[in-house]
Amino acid sequence: MGMTASEKESIRLRYLEVDTSNVADVLDNMNLLQQGLAADFGPYPETCKRMAGWAYTIRGQMTPYPQGGDADKMQACQGLSPGEIGVWSGNGEGICYFGELIALGMKERGCVGALIDGGIRDVRWIGEHQFPVFARYKTSVQSIGRWKVNACQVPVYMRGHDGGNVIVRPGDFILADEDGAIVIPVEHVHTVLVEAERLTEIEKNIRKEIANGLTLAEALKKYGHV
């Protein structure tokens, strides 16, 4: 899907104005039923309310290796571009995939957040840098010597809402907010956005009508169910 940088950024900013709940409903109506991520993905720190961006995938695995740094992780992050979200996938349980310094390096490249199917640490400091992260858990245990990046910009699996897997490909779109995180396939990104914006506008009108004295039943009769 060929888009200019300005077109991609315009779409990203528009997605920041819609909710994952509306996007999820649109995807269901399109019979794209396996796009929602597991319920334990949450914001770190909690003050991080939402993020939206294009997927840049990073994959790793548990493997023992000597202490002394992880050049592969640093190298993988060098390919990040403005407007992208680092999507970290792998089988590391109980360890963090990255902390403050990697987050700073990502932010320097214009990265707008991270989605981690694993752990994070340095939560307070990442919050100080206003770098949004949605992860499954936090832990003080580092990845060095335990978990190593083995690929980037390849399709990856992330834990899905029903215990299955959600495939995230490079260039797919990620939206996360207070209700959770969801993946929009790139080929549907514009169609989903337009419909989610339509639902958002209807909901705004319903809230306004109820605030002005209309009953819920009367508002739904006027605007329909959303």
Rank of each mutant, 00 (worst) to 15 (best):
T4V: 00
A5P: 02
K8C: 00
R12T: 13
R12D: 10
Y15E: 03
N22T: 08
N22A: 02
N22F: 08
N22G: 09
A24E: 06
V26K: 02
N31H: 12
N31L: 14
Q34M: 11
Q34A: 14
Q34T: 14
L37C: 04
G42M: 13
P45G: 08
T47F: 04
C48H: 05
K49M: 12
R50T: 10
M51A: 01
M51K: 04
A52C: 15
G53M: 06
W54I: 13
W54M: 09
W54A: 07
A55W: 06
A55C: 08
R59H: 14
Q61P: 03
T63F: 02
P64G: 05
Y65D: 06
Q67H: 12
G68F: 12
G69L: 12
A71S: 11
D72K: 15
K73Y: 12
M74H: 10
Q75K: 11
A76N: 03
Q78T: 14
Q78D: 12
P82I: 09
E84C: 12
E84M: 15
E84S: 15
I85Q: 07
I85Y: 01
V87H: 01
V87I: 13
W88T: 03
W88F: 15
G90I: 14
G92W: 00
G92A: 15
G99Q: 09
L101V: 07
A103R: 04
G105E: 03
G105T: 05
V112P: 03
A114E: 01
A114R: 00
I116R: 00
I116E: 06
I116T: 01
D117E: 08
G118N: 06
I120S: 07
R121I: 05
G127L: 11
E128P: 06
A135K: 04
A135C: 03
R136N: 05
Y137W: 13
T139I: 08
V141R: 10
V141F: 08
S143W: 01
R146M: 06
K148V: 15
A151E: 07
A151N: 05
C152D: 12
Q153G: 03
V154Q: 03
V154C: 04
Y157W: 10
M158C: 06
R159A: 07
H161W: 02
V166N: 01
I167V: 15
I167N: 04
V168I: 14
V168Q: 00
P170F: 02
G171Q: 06
D172W: 01
I174R: 00
L175H: 00
A176K: 09
D177P: 07
D179A: 09
D179V: 06
V183I: 13
I184D: 03
I184W: 01
P185S: 08
H188I: 13
H190W: 05
T191F: 08
V192F: 07
L193R: 02
E201L: 10
E203G: 11
N205I: 08
R207P: 05
K208R: 14
E209H: 13
I210N: 02
I210M: 08
L214G: 10
T215S: 15
A217C: 09
K221C: 10
K222A: 15
H225L: 08
V226F: 02
V226K: 03
